[in-house]
Design a binder for these strands. Structure first.
Lengths: 254, 254
DNA sequence: CGGGCCGTTGAGCGGGCTCAAGACATGTGG
DNA sequence: CCACATGTCTTGAGCCCGCTCAACGGCCCG
């Protein structure tokens, strides 16, 4: 048992409390989860397709990708993860992985035995529902990416991804929505957006020469957020960053 | 309260018990859920993007699709649903819909108030975990479809979809894996696979002339399952049709 | 200073799209 | 029973977005 919860557990708690109201015993039980913090190197695997998964990994620092490789050798990235994301609830709750989780930068994470999470969710069903909702939101992100890859052209796809990362990095307190780190290579971006790295390069160049973004090393500055949002057909609703009750209040105010 | 649970609830129970062991009180509580059975017409919406969702719909007969329309008017279908599928746990557990659910054939379904499901999962956390796992498997299907659309060519995409439908219809007791109904139009198939209906027609024709399948009205006969599985790069593991313990047993026997 | 890795740019190609027309089944009203 | 409309599927012809192949330049780090 950890007497001093890691930043990973604290970030996870904050994330879950965005959408669910906990009482003190819920909160204490979550923070009392047994955990082991580890540093992770770029390209290190957190979980591998088809292997058993015994721990749930919560990111503390750095970025990770969720991906799977098709029989023809082509890789598809399904989502990008950052601080506070319980990155393999999906794999660990089902016992065996059906995709890979891999770091794209150096980082740190805390590992929680999945059996402890199972017991926690049985003893504190409100925490269980909150975690369930968290995976539902991740499923919504998968759907939005499918729509993105399937139904938008290269520039829109790129704009949409940049908008999502802007919102999520700000949310995770890793930068502002106007200027944030994006430590992925263009090859990784290509596998997330279903383009060749060559076309990623050309597409980013177009966005920059059109004045929508500017690029430094591995970070992005958004120069025209309105235009980028419109080009990317982006609506952050699917990320569910507010409680439903908040949304209702907003709706009733309008 | 329904004293005679509908075929929808019974099919849902059977589906959840594929992966989770219930005791009698779990089972009784699930079957005692309040429900309303309704007939549904082809093209009728079960839920609409951005609307509030108060019920969870479990299909009894007929097929439904999950989809969203991008700003450019193009539609992307995310999954196809049939008997026993709790089709909008995703939307209803989050309160508002972020995509559409629509019938592609006439059918029947039972509607369960989502508040009753929330209470059930708090009082019977094992049932909650089973439903959570069900949505995790659906998320796995979303990922597999993303891989399909993003990383396979038209013929492989089509083959993969046919393999998935073959396995799932057999599982749902709606036909054999060799011969099953597929009541979708080629336009709907196209929106599921990200192709034009014209290309769907040509692709199906190629699969038929190559001797992999034959087509009658709205049903498919699989003539060469091995070749179709190989072409579609299909591995049913992501559907999680067996308990993990079963899989472990199989693995240890090998 | 040399060797990866990463990003950029050019030139040509191709899978799947667009546009167009026709075939065929089903349903509806006269 | 036919006339007609509608929805679905098929086939043909031409085109384009993003891919492939290739070369080069910049950066980091040993």
């Amino acid at each position: 048992m950890s007497y001093f919860p890691s930043h990973g557990l604290l970030a996870l708690l904050a994330k879950l409390e965005l959408r669910t109201s906990f009482n003190n015993s819920d909160r204490d039980a979550l923070l009392a989860l047994p955990e082991t913090v580890r540093t992770l190197r770029r390209h290190e695997f957190i979980a591998r397709d088809q292997e058993n998964v015994r721990d749930c990994c919560v990111l503390i620092a750095g970025f990770a990708i969720r991906h799977k490789v098709a029989g023809n050798g082509l890789r598809q990235i399904f989502s990008i993860h950052m601080k506070g994301d319980p990155v393999d609830l999906h794999n660990s709750m089902l016992g065996t992985a059906d995709h890979n989780l891999q770091m794209v930068s150096d980082g740190r994470a805390t590992f929680i035995p999945i059996d402890a999470i199972r017991e926690l969710t049985l003893a504190f069903p409100t925490v269980g529902q909150a975690m369930w909702q968290e995976t539902l939101v991740e499923a919504a992100i998968f759907r939005e990416w499918t729509l993105n890859i399937g139904r938008r052209d290269a520039r829109s796809r790129m704009a949409h991804l940049l908008c999502e990362l802007a919102v999520r990095t700000e949310q995770a307190d890793l930068g502002t929505a106007e200027n944030f780190e994006m430590p992925m290579t263009q090859e990784e971006l290509g596998d997330a957006l279903t383009m060749t790295p060559i076309h990623v390069s050309r597409t980013l160049k177009i966005l920059a020469t059109d004045g929508l973004i500017s690029r430094e090393k591995r970070s992005i500055r958004i120069l025209d957020r309105y235009a980028l949002t419109k080009l990317g057909d982006f609506d952050s609703a699917y990320l569910r960053l507010t409680k439903d009750s908040d949304a209702d209040e907003l709706a009733s105010v309008e």
